[in-house]
Amino acid sequence: MAAIASGNAVRTSEEKQSFWLRDRKWDLLFITFSVIVVPLPYLAYLFGRDVFGISDDVARNVVNGFVAVAIGGPHMMSTFLRTGLDNTFNKRYPMLIRSSIIIPIIVIALAFLNLTLLLTVFFFWASIHVLHQVTYIVELYNHKEGKYVRHSAVSWSARMIDYAIILTCLFPIAAYKISQGSFEIGTNDLGQAIPDFFEQPWFFVVMSGVFFLALAAYVIKTFREYREGTINWPKTAFITITVIVAFFTPMLPNLDTAFQGLNTWHSFQYLAITFYIIKIRQEYGKLDEESPLVARFSRQSKDSRGLYMLSTILLGGSLVIFILVYAITSIVSPNIDSNAHFDTAYYTAILSFLWIHYYHDHFLFTDFESLDKAYQ
């Protein structure tokens, strides 16, 4: 993780004119082939449960906790290196920063009043956020291709086909489980918060039909680009691997841990891009003036070790909330089930900051020029 933005941000002329966001080694290691981390949380869960004989819920929560501390949490907090800790961003979006305080209030209220509803909203928003990041990375590839490589914009139809396959790949199997009334995250049955209208076979049929229609269009588009010699291989490989992994992940019986695999890959990509953007600003911009604390940690090493450390330190806020909510829950509901007790504190501590992270990223994911300085 420490090497995620290693080296000087200056690119060679050949790298600037290639399709890669940075260079082939970096893109493959941190964006595309980092997909190898997806099965690790689930394998760790199975290993703990079946080899060491740890109970299912304990094994699940241990994996959740480790992913949260090691990568999910730092990825979540790294957002604030570009928003809350950035004076320029604060001046540009003051209402965004101020309105963020509403999110923890909503999270805490739902955690105590209706945890199932909280997790249902979380799952839906998390899915949208993960797919939004995928489209953002795709647009970074499109932006570089159109402005610095071919000097012509990617066609509207090609963009729409890419978006269609990305935004539908996660939902056919999830729709099937919803239609069967078996959509559970950990010990929480999210079907209780999903209207009965969707727990019908038609929902699975419609979602599958839309996905396979998008898949057919994507295959045809890709084959045509290949024959015409216009295919963007880095982008195409990234989309293809993402679609395959996202489509099959919901098939696993333990969705809680299964989605931790996607979360790990998503977080790995996010940290790589975020730290690289900061390194570019440090090299070409005014990071010392705009984000003095971030600049101080970024200067600690040529790689991203200092930035990762700062993101992890910020994670202490979640730990404080977890301890407070865990203690309060014992008082408010002394007879609460142990799993529900942990989930209430865990999801409150994580989602309070995670949803702010989602909220801010809806703005950050529109900045397709964030890597431009490295290409000029």
Rank of each mutant, 00 (worst) to 15 (best):
L170A: 14
I165N: 03
A5G: 01
I102D: 14
H357K: 08
A217V: 05
S155N: 07
S18N: 08
S13W: 12
L262W: 03
L29T: 15
E14Y: 10
I350E: 14
G7R: 10
S155P: 06
Q192M: 13
V206Q: 01
R299A: 15
E14Q: 12
V243K: 00
T135G: 02
V332P: 03
F211D: 02
N339G: 07
K16D: 01
P94Y: 01
S318N: 11
G84C: 05
R98L: 12
A217D: 05
I106F: 15
N61T: 05
M77N: 02
I102Q: 07
S311C: 05
V38Y: 11
D189N: 15
F197Y: 12
T79R: 05
W233H: 11
L271A: 02
P94K: 03
F80Y: 05
F268G: 09
I220K: 12
L190S: 04
T120D: 09
F198T: 00
E225D: 15
A214Q: 08
F33A: 10
Y93W: 07
G285T: 07
A174Y: 09
T83N: 02
S352L: 00
N142M: 11
W156L: 08
V62W: 13
L96F: 10
W156C: 01
V67W: 08
T236N: 14
F353D: 00
E15D: 06
Y270H: 14
V206L: 04
I108T: 07
G317P: 00
K221H: 05
S18Y: 08
S127Q: 13
A349Y: 04
G181W: 02
L364Y: 03
A349R: 02
A70K: 06
D162A: 10
I97Y: 06
S208W: 02
D162H: 12
L271G: 00
Y163L: 07
F322N: 06
V69T: 06
E139G: 10
P74T: 08
T257H: 09
S152P: 01
N114L: 13
V149W: 11
V35G: 04
T88H: 11
F47D: 09
T222S: 03
E283T: 14
W156A: 10
D23F: 08
R150Q: 06
F223W: 09
F363D: 11
N263H: 04
Q269M: 09
F368C: 04
M251E: 03
E139Y: 12
W265N: 08
V325G: 01
I321H: 02
L215T: 03
R305E: 14
L40G: 08
E199R: 14
P172W: 03
L28T: 08
Y136C: 01
L315A: 09
T32I: 14
Y218F: 15
Y176I: 04
T135A: 00
V62S: 06
L293D: 04
T366S: 12
V243F: 05
S182E: 15
I106W: 10
L113P: 03
F122R: 11
V63M: 08
V51C: 07
L262E: 00
V37M: 11
E139H: 13
I280D: 08
T242R: 09
Y346S: 09
N61I: 04
S267F: 04
I71P: 00
T88Y: 12
L351M: 13
T79M: 04
F122C: 02
S155V: 03
D196K: 13
S333A: 07
M160N: 12
